[in-house]
Nucleic acid binder design. Structure first.
Lengths: 384, 384
DNA sequence: AGTTTATGCTCGTGGGACGAGTTTAATGGG
DNA sequence: CCCATTAAACTCGTCCCACGAGCATAAACT
């Protein structure tokens, strides 16, 4: 193990980071954004080519001048296995350094028992290992639940108890990166979605309860143990209502299907997600009134988070999109009414999230962040 | 203006960063933490000495072996003027690269009119300019109010309206870095205070209302325009109560002297800070009950923020310290009761802030962050 | 076909990190 | 008191890489 010379792969790392953040970028564009001289660009791409990290394909000409090339992941280059575990199914894809998804898979759960599901994921890891060998560098997993140091702490939608997720890579020596699905979809939105380019972005998604994350320059604020982003469990409403999370009066209890059912004087729905969709389809007065209450709670809660974090933009996903759409005026009033006065001149926009496969792409993005660091590149080169 | 060669001052920048973060660090210790070979350490310190950025003084010997040297700011090196504006006074100090404060000043306001106060600050800037000439590189200012792009948006304690703070450096060409005092004291705590070393830290301070900041690796999450950290203006309690900020039901209204007065059925106190101290001195039943209510709101609000951000540690300052102390049991119950179940095993500690001159030190720290960047070093070298 | 334009390639230069070998300045044991 | 031990500083040859000037190339205009 020869020690890595400092800065040896610094520029290479910068180039690869550009490539993951803007797939399909041209070599000339990379050189411009990194302020590289053409000579340096030639050298760094040659080096990256030599170690099987990138290839170049002719770019369609863009006017006068010698045409440049598109940078692409090398066909023999490193890859990541991205997994997205959902309530009723799971998906996977192999992701290359240019951020493209290959070999996408989609499977419905036959059984939803933790051990069965984890075994299926583990098999997927092993299959990727078989197929890609040493090219497979990392496994990244999105889970609909609270994650702490690669352990699942609670997962209301899956109805799973605490669980060690590292079993899916155990024995393979592959690093695992498990993350909350809402956090990861936020990463995707902040990098290539509706919040692209935002310095500070806030992402919120309603499915059962609300999840989300604060993103600073595309990096999620995950907290000490990775459990950050549980915005649903801030005290907001009636303290006499206990939340399954253990606290009382959580915002969570005011903005999803459970809240709608309560307003409609019905019991806790089995599937709050489907229940919400159902109520949204109704046109009767009591349903509209219930929706209005929920949308109001959503708007004023978001306003509070804007006061707290001053984001450039907020992206909303899941049921938050149809909920807002069902009562746009209520939302606007609650949102703007909850802002501190000085924010009202130009309130940060609340945009619908645009990426359907956000968690998978976000998981891939965080894994690629690791692969494009200098030490990871040095390790890749050393191993070949 | 010759273009800066990439990486020319990379290592120098790293060394200076170490120096600002751990004043009084030895050269050998820097080399160890940056994993520098002794040869490189010799070279980089020689370079820094040549350009008047550091000097070395013999370090007290620490056992066997050749003694190392302490790194110190160079007597001809760059400095920052740090200013801390408070309700009844202001303070200033000159800060060098090793983080030491020189020429401390303390002045009470004669008049509290904005123009008078800003003029005094401006005079202080001019005086520093006179005294230090080109060595003065930057002015950093802590203000008890919401700051946005160097503009004061609102300042309840000062009772000032919106105001452009850049007048204090106008014409000097000096960059100004204005920030909220609570945010800046958080920076100080996260770097050298009670939260030193924390990856994610939350800092909260009660004076009139509550201010604070989320810190990730010592860097405050300031948001899009620098107005982040207004945790007091998240909806928390009774929505029928309007907050001066423009929103309703803010947490702010539940945790300071105004809340105590309300519980005690008295009118809004002129000076909520002094009023709180007064109530804390009382031992009668109604006062105790009012304090209990406020402490409970403080504890459960902090718990919500812990759920949202998963910090390693929370630091509290200002009146939050005596308030908690007055009802420790209530605080603990409200805090732990508001946490999500999985946090309760080892709840993040809530520690009293330790630095009395936090805002000044925090302002200095953020300014030094700028001075120790590669471009700033290159500019310093080019100018000499 | 020649001009313009943007880009890629070659190569000499220089700076800086590295590390092996050497020197220096302290402690501590005999 | 001297010498072994220890930790750190210094010297210097080496290598790597970014830079930029000059040249080559491939397209689009004229």
């Amino acid at each position: 193990m020869n020690p890595v010379r400092r800065g040896q792969w610094q520029m290479a790392s910068d180039v690869l980071t550009q490539l993951t953040r803007q797939p399909g970028i041209t070599r000339a564009a990379v050189a411009r954004t990194l302020r590289l001289s053409t000579g340096s660009a030639t050298e760094v791409t040659a080096r990256l080519r030599d170690v099987h990290l990138v290839t170049e394909v002719p770019a369609p000409s863009q006017g006068r001048g010698r045409p440049t090339t598109l940078l692409r992941a090398h066909p023999e280059g490193p890859v990541v296995l991205a997994l997205d575990l959902r309530q009723s199914n799971w998906r996977s894809a192999i992701v290359t350094l240019d951020g493209s998804l290959q070999d996408p898979e989609y499977r419905r759960h036959r059984s939803r028992r933790p051990q069965v599901v984890l075994n299926n994921l583990r098999r997927q890891v092993e299959q990727a290992r078989q197929q890609y060998g040493d090219r497979l560098r990392m496994v990244s997993l999105a889970v609909p639940g609270t994650i702490r140091d690669n352990h699942l702490m609670q997962a209301p939608t899956l109805e799973w108890a605490e669980l060690d997720l590292e079993t899916i890579t155990e024995g393979t020596g592959l690093p695992l990166l498990a993350g909350n699905d809402a956090t990861l979809s936020g990463v995707a939105e902040a990098r290539t979605g509706a919040a692209a380019g935002a310095g500070t972005a806030l992402h919120l998604i309603i499915e059962v309860g609300i999840g989300g994350t604060l993103l600073i320059d595309g990096v999620p604020a995950q907290g000490a143990s990775g459990a950050g982003g549980e915005y649903g469990h801030v005290p907001f409403g009636d303290r006499s209502r206990a939340c399954p999370c253990g606290a009382r009066g959580c915002w969570d209890l005011e903005i999803d299907g459970r809240a709608l059912a309560r307003h409609l004087k019905q019991g806790r729905p089995d599937d709050p997600y489907a229940y919400t969709e159902e109520v949204l389809r109704r046109t009767d007065r009591s349903a509209r009134a219930a929706v209005t209450k929920v949308v109001s709670a959503l708007g004023s809660g978001i306003a509070g988070l804007v006061n707290a974090h001053d984001p450039d933009v907020i992206t909303i996903g899941g049921l938050a999109i149809p909920l807002r759409a069902a009562a746009e005026r209520t939302f606007k009033e609650a949102y703007e009414g909850g802002l501190m006065t000085f924010h009202r001149g130009s309130p940060p926009p609340v945009l619908p999230a645009t990426l359907p496969d956000g968690p998978l792409r976000g998981a891939a993005a965080l894994a690629l962040d690791q692969l494009t660091t200098e030490p990871a590149i040095a390790a890749w080169v050393a191993q070949r």
